[in-house]
Design a protein around this nucleic acid. Structure first.
Length: 570
RNA sequence: UGGGGGAUUGUGUAAUGGUAGCACGGCAGAUUCUGGAUCUGCUUGUGAGGGUUCGAAUCCUUCUCCCCCAGCCA
């Protein structure tokens, strides 16, 4: 799979290349800075691939740094999941694992420096008052009455904040910049707030915590980051990022560059909203296969290769955009087509009795494991007089273009024989077919006919006596609209059919040893991932990763739309 | 009504004054023991107006539309 092959250089790599060429930098250092307040999603994968990818492309390095400055939201569980997801994606931070909390003491000393320089002060206004004093988008703010406290007093107050003498919200440390700035971020932004809360890593050693704007730029500088890549909403923060670094004796001054975050159609890309889906039980958990989280995609059957391939192809730019989820699906199909073992599974079984096949005979037929890769070898599949095919592969009154089994018609059973439908037994109440009576042609063993006659279609099947029971979960888009985030309440556009459960499927016996994580292509149906529940419950359980492209489904859909067209009477 | 960004086909992304290309999707065909895969062809695009130039997606200008910012979140 060609990663970084023919894709053009993005604007960030162009900047970096220039910086290398001009001699501004000799080595490139980037970082991926997640806040451990939720699970990583495919949007983060874009950032991970960008930052680690750049480090790789330019023989530099990329740090994994947790931005853990808000103990009210952050948890160790998230730290662990993030590390797992980043390495599962195939990236290695080596010894460069850092935490903003590692720098709390340094950060504090930098703040002291700012205070001594008269560039920061302790404000005793309440949060509400600070908001009022900040002004609005169109009106300047006004100075806090505490703005002109002298450095000695500020130093004393700041030390006492650290010592725990004040309660949450009683005071904050603010940068002294410009209350009239048209950029609200520059109107004396808060640098430190009091949070008497234990921190996942520093426990109760601190009760004051630095804000993002203060911690992030300094952490970057401390680590020698050359290019600090973040998303568009931080563009307004860049003047503050630069201001702080300009005031302090830092080892270097990284360049912040912003790019557009990823949006994907038919899903959400916000940790807050995804957490909401988990909390209200709309999905099972963060790793529900319907979730766009890395862990959800993993459990859905996505491979790191496919995700990296996807991230490589969506590009990097500053335009807000929504990528068609069909591209993600294309990427996983492209990967799985080459590597997934083919196997036969019947989701909605329809019984077939082959009248002219000896009742007690069993043949072992040869089947290729992957036509795309002969190296994957062959396997044996048992055939006998009673089999099951897919209910959808039979129609008593076949519509046009239905190339499958019907009364009097002949089809091929994949890898087996040609069979012809001679009779239909129906449920007297519903009229639904419950059993078909067929004959087979012994001359077509393996699925070939010496006389060269064509057959309308090919069906997958399982032998009734040998099939294994399995549960199959078919996943569809989580939302019914392409842009659920645009909705006032995204819960109203949840797709009620995002999960279709089939608990009595029949699969071929070679699946007996399927292990969680194993990937298959169920012939003619799609790609499937062996779920961890297989190990827990002992029942074979498969998650559909993606459907195969399905021309027949498309035809049916088109017909349906044609028939549903309102009649216009003239 | 302040500030910061952005606009190329259905979607995403290239082209940095010189033939608007690629991918996905869609459509049509070939091929096929998966209605899969593969192959071929097609697929109404430079937000609008003015200007500079032999030549403009690209430079200048006016306008329009979209996104972000008033957390003691990141």
């Amino acid at each position: 799979m060609a990663e970084n092959g023919d894709t053009a250089k993005d604007f960030i790599r162009a900047i970096i290349e220039q910086d290398l060429k001009s001699g501004k930098h000799k080595e490139i250092v980037t970082r991926f800075p997640p806040e451990p307040n939720g699970y990583l999603h495919i949007g983060h994968a874009k950032s991970i691939c960008l930052n680690f990818g750049i480090a790789k492309d330019f023989s530099g390095r990329c740090h994994l740094r947790f931005d853990d400055t808000d103990p009210s939201k952050e948890e160790t569980e998230y730290i662990e999941s993030i590390k797992e997801d980043v390495s599962w994606l195939g990236f290695d931070w080596g010894k460069h694992l850092y935490y903003a909390s590692d720098y709390f003491e340094k950060l504090y000393q930098y703040a002291v420096l700012l205070i001594k320089d008269g560039k920061a002060y302790v404000d005793s206004l309440s949060a509400d008052e600070i908001r009022e004093y900040r002004g609005t988008l169109t009106e300047p703010g006004k100075d806090s009455p505490h703005r002109n406290r002298q450095p000695e007093e500020n130093l004393d107050l700041f030390q006492r904040m650290r010592d725990g003498e004040f309660d949450d919200g009683e005071c904050v440390l603010r940068a002294k910049i410009d209350m009239a700035s048209p950029n609200l971020n520059m109107r004396d932004p808060t640098l430190y707030r009091i949070r008497k809360l234990p921190h996942p890593r520093t426990d109760d050693r601190w009760c004051i915590y630095p804000m993002y704007d203060f911690a992030h730029c300094l952490s970057d500088a401390i680590e020698g980051i050359t290019h600090s890549i973040c998303t568009l909403e931080f563009e307004d923060h860049r003047p503050l990022y630069d201001w702080i670094l300009d005031q302090l004796p830092v080892p270097c001054h990284p360049r912040q560059i912003e790019f557009a975050r990823l949006n994907l159609s038919y899903t959400l890309m916000s940790k807050r909203k995804l957490k909401n889906l988990v909390d209200r039980g709309s999905v099972e958990n963060w790793d529900d296969p319907r979730m766009p989280t890395i862990s959800g995609l993993r459990r859905r059957g996505y491979t790191p290769e496919a995700i990296r391939y996807f991230c490589d192809r969506i590009g990097v730019a500053k335009t807000n955009s929504v990528v068609d989820i069909a591209l993600l699906e294309h990427c996983i199909r492209d990967d799985l087509n080459k590597r997934a073992q083919r196997v036969m599974a019947v989701l909605k079984p329809l019984k077939i009795i082959i009248d002219n096949y000896p009742e007690d005979k069993v043949e072992l037929l040869d089947a290729e494991n992957n036509p795309e890769d002969p190296g994957m070898g062959m396997r044996k599949i048992p055939f006998s007089s009673v089999i099951y095919i897919e209910r959808d592969d039979f129609s008593e009154n076949p519509p046009p273009k239905f190339f499958r089994l019907a009364p009097g018609r002949e089809i091929r059973l994949k890898h087996a024989y040609y069979i012809k439908c001679k009779g239909v037994e129906k449920d007297p109440k519903t009229g639904e077919a419950v059993c078909l009576y067929c004959t087979y042609d012994p001359e077509t063993r393996g699925g070939w006919s010496a006389d060269g006659r064509k057959v309308l279609g090919t069906s997958h099947w399982v032998s009734a006596a040998h099939a294994l029971q399995a549960e199959v979960r078919l996943y569809n888009h989580l939302f019914t609209t392409p842009n659920p985030a645009d909705e006032k309440d995204f819960n109203t556009v949840l797709n009620p059919g995002s999960l279709e459960l089939f608990s009595s499927c029949l699969v071929e016996p070679s699946l007996k040893d399927a292990k969680p994580g194993n990937l298959y292509q169920f012939l003619r149906q799609g790609y499937f991932y062996t779920d961890q529940d297989t190990a827990k419950t002992g029942k074979l359980t498969f998650n559909r990763t993606a459907t195969l492209r399905d021309t027949w489904a498309k035809i049916k859909k088109a017909e349906g739309q044609k028939n549903n067209k309102p009649r216009i009477s003239s």
